[in-house]
């Protein structure tokens, strides 16, 4: 029924002899808002980095619209332009202003003209509430603002999927809300396809359409948020949720 955008098949990743991901299988459909939860060190971030080819896979394949993009001789830049990524540490370009951060990818990768790129950048910056700050440099704005600009930068490429790698983990508590609000609006209003690694359980429960629980490099359990959060099957999921929701 719905269109598979990403299919991860038998993905494994090892750093040396240390296996971080073991035989991961899952799919992302158009319009899905998937959250990946799990303890630190369970491989969530590595999985996301593999999907964006920032790490090379040890074995397995990643299909994007049915085509393997992790093999040899694939233009990974072209693929990455269609899959946006928001990092825990923002990774805004320090040498460029907020506006230029959101324009450079459009101009250099998508070959969009200056005026059009500027319009697009302003549109998305306005969407995340950062349009007044276009002349600021990344070191002049707060963490929450940086992350919102990073989201606008990813959106300006108009990707088919947006990956979020713990987007609120590096933020002061009072700034977490502003970033989650932006993400919530993307998921519900714009129906953006998103894959979010997060420790924000209420966000995972209330906003996502699909929840994946990872432990020790495997997908322990996945399903709809109501099921995972109120009626988990696996004892490990139960244990994890009990621990995290009680404090």
């Amino acid at each position: 029924m719905s269109e598979h955008i990403l299919e991860i098949r038998h993905l494994s990743k090892a750093f040396g002899t240390h296996a971080v991901l073991k035989d991961i299988d899952f799919t992302v459909d158009k319009g899905d808002m998937t959250t990946i939860i799990g303890a630190s060190g369970s491989g969530k971030s590595t999985l996301l980095r593999c999907i964006n080819l920032l790490e090379t896979l040890t074995t397995g394949e990643i299909l994007f619209h049915g085509k393997d993009i992790a093999g040899r001789g694939v233009n990974s830049s072209a693929y990455r332009a269609k899959v946006g990524m928001v990092f825990q540490s923002f990774n805004l370009f320090n040498n460029l202003t907020v506006l230029a951060n959101c324009m450079i990818g459009q101009q250099k990768v998508l070959k969009i003209g200056h005026d059009e790129a500027r319009k697009r950048a302003l549109y998305y910056l306005n969407k995340v509430g950062m349009a007044p700050y276009i002349n600021a440099r990344p070191d002049q704005i707060s963490g929450g603002q940086k992350q919102r600009v990073a989201i606008a930068r990813a959106l300006a490429m108009e990707p088919e999927v947006l990956l979020f790698d713990e987007p609120t983990s590096a933020l002061d508590p009072e700034m977490v809300g502003e970033v989650l609000d932006v993400m919530k609006s993307l998921a519900t209003k714009d129906n953006m396809t998103m894959l979010v690694v997060t420790h924000e359980m209420s966000f995972a429960r209330d906003v996502s359409t699909h929840v994946v629980y990872m432990a020790d490099g495997v997908i322990e359990e996945e399903g709809e948020p109501e099921k995972i959060f109120s009626n988990p099957e696996s004892p490990r999921t139960k244990e994890f949720l009990k621990r995290i929701l009680n404090n």
Partner: peptide, 25 residues
Amino acid sequence: PGQFEGAKAIGMNHWQTMLYIILPQ
């Protein structure tokens, strides 16, 4: 290294990353 990753993530190749992001810094 995050600067390289940020540039890669929006689809820049090595030359673009170097020319527009890394070398100015």
